[in-house]
């Protein structure tokens, strides 16, 4: 019979799942809390660049779709905060860490959405990259995180398709519409490649996360997968991926591509992206503006509970 850490390692070695009340190394717990929290923060901050276009969507159909998509992202954030809480932290504390800048979210959401085509590019590229990152997480060794990812992945495919459809429509429209789509691809391509994190040679947490079954593929593997998947889709749109070094390698069956400028990634993560301050300020304001709702709901619940107690006595 195995107890404590022996049981943990045996479960990991057998590719089993760790559940909330199992014994686990402190490092495993901390790594998961950090990763799940930052993933949750990314989902809710990610509502902002798209929310920016809800009131300006070009048709009622597009507006309804965009609202549903942004609502899904709120849902993804909630699944993930709930998964993080099974590790013994409070959602309220995680939000404090986000609001005070001590926990990060994906750097991609610090770029602005300048045109309607950006909404297409986000669905196609950003949700596309998120899918490549998230599919392997459905097999993560931590049960609640893996289960949340299964739900998320089911919902993401609609996100990617609606984005592609927006661009496809623009690409088959007027020359100005097509140029708008190309401009969006030009601006979102490199930040999307950065979504997979630093190159393997510079990645700090990867090895331990792989050993623990939290991470299943390296950053560079996932980035390659994304490029291989996306380039043929750009061809269908008739758009040009803004990489002069891009070419198909017959021998390996993979595309060769130029690495993004990682100094930009580090810089945006540090807080110097075009929208970092705006995103965080908006998040904090939304949270503070909602305080009276939480207080009123709690007061109502308290009153109802005391009435029930009164009538039972």
């Amino acid at each position: 019979m195995l107890a404590g850490m022996d049981s943990f390692q045996a479960t990991i070695d057998a590719d089993g799942r760790i559940e909330p009340r199992d014994a686990m190394p402190e490092g495993y717990r901390k790594t998961l809390i950090r990763q799940i929290a930052q993933h949750a923060h990314s989902e809710i901050i990610g509502m902002q660049p798209e929310g920016n276009w809800i009131s300006r969507a070009p048709s009622l159909r597009r507006k309804a779709i965009l609202m549903a998509k942004v609502q899904d992202e709120a849902g993804h954030g909630l699944y993930l905060y709930a998964a993080a809480e099974t590790l013994g932290v409070d959602r309220a504390d995680l939000l404090d860490l986000l609001h005070s800048g001590r926990q990060k979210y994906s750097s991609i959401f610090n770029y602005p959405t300048l045109t309607w085509a950006d909404i297409g590019a986000i669905g196609w590229l950003v949700d596309g990259a998120a899918i490549v990152n998230q599919v392997p997480l459905c097999r993560c060794s931590y049960g609640p995180y893996a289960r949340a990812m299964v739900r998320v992945c089911k919902e993401e495919s609609f996100h990617q398709r609606q984005g592609f459809e927006i661009l496809h429509t623009l690409c088959n429209g007027t020359p100005a519409q097509k140029a708008m789509a190309q401009d969006a691809l030009d601006r979102w391509w490199w930040p999307s490649l950065m979504m997979f994190g630093p190159p393997d040679s510079a990645s700090t947490h990867s090895e331990q996360s792989m050993a623990w079954g939290i991470k299943r593929h390296s950053n560079d593997e996932l980035r390659q997968r994304f490029v291989d998947m996306t380039v043929p889709q750009a061809d269908v749109l008739g758009l040009k991926v803004p990489d002069e070094g891009l070419s198909y390698d017959e021998e390996t069956g993979h595309y060769r591509f130029t690495e993004p400028d990682y100094t930009e990634l580090y810089d945006v993560v540090k807080g110097n992206g075009p929208c970092n301050q705006q995103r965080l300020a908006h998040r904090v304001k939304a949270h503070e503006d909602g305080a009276w709702v939480r207080e009123a709901a709690a007061a109502y619940a308290g009153k109802q509970a005391s009435r029930r107690e009164g009538s039972a006595a």
Partner: peptide
Amino acid sequence: HVGSLHAPDATMALRNARDVYTRR
């Protein structure tokens, strides 16, 4: 079991559960 959520009371918990876990 599909997950968890925070709510001040059972009525709100049910409504939130509908919005979070049964959008489709």
